[in-house]
């Protein structure tokens, strides 16, 4: 059995760092693991996704339609966009954060209303983590990703991993304490 996690968001939100830390923890538990990212155009404010699959033996690195056990979204419209990749019985974890894409910012189209309600209707097991807001309350909007990581770790119900020291390994020393606080905030959700 493999577990598939699809992390989605907007370029620059730190989804890749989140998946690197998660991957390191899963490897320390002895799992085989594959992680897939799409680079290139994705940095430029576009939609981004990284995919992690772990289990006894993993073959395909990427996740197709209705294959994700967990869909983790850093932005609510991105959760909507990638929802078809979630297994009908899968778990959705999403921020209620709102980031305008250029067509929205330029007034070519609107940002939809009622996204969270729609997600709740379609994926009843949804966990909404207001990580963007919590990160700003902690004093740095950039730790949003580590708060989401904490919430995801808790939902995965994994064996024992020293997550704080892994997080400390991957973030710059000067923001280490803030990130550990963010991890703790996420783990409590």
């Amino acid at each position: 059995m493999t577990t598939s996690i699809l992390l989605v968001g907007v370029g620059g939100q730190g989804a890749i760092l989140t998946s690197k830390i998660l991957a390191a923890g899963l490897i320390s538990l002895g799992y085989d693991l594959k992680m897939s990212e799409i680079h290139g155009m994705s940095q430029r404010g576009g939609s981004v996704s990284t995919q992690i699959k772990f289990g006894r033996r993993v073959y395909a690195p990427n996740i197709g339609l209705m294959e994700a056990d967990y869909l983790v979204s850093f932005e609510k419209v991105e959760a909507l966009r990638f929802l078809p990749f979630l297994k009908p019985e899968g778990r959705l974890i999403t921020d209620d954060h709102e980031i305008y894409s250029l067509p929205v910012a330029a007034g070519l189209t609107g940002y939809p209303e009622g996204v969270i309600e729609e997600l709740q209707r379609l994926a009843p097991g949804i966990l909404v983590v207001p990580a963007g807001r919590l990160a700003r309350e902690l004093g740095n909007a950039k730790v949003q990703n580590i708060i989401i990581l904490g919430a995801l770790i808790r939902a995965l119900e994994l064996g024992p991993v020293d997550w704080p020291s892994l997080v400390a390994d991957y973030v710059p020393a000067k923001v280490r304490d803030l990130n550990l606080l963010a991890l703790d905030t996420g783990l409590r959700r």
Binding site: Q43, G45, G46, M66, V77, E78, Y111
Partner: peptide, 18 residues
Amino acid sequence: ARPLTSLIQPPPRPPVLC
């Protein structure tokens, strides 16, 4: 089994100039 899809169309999010 059908993929979960919403009637709300997510607005496109293409890569853009920084």
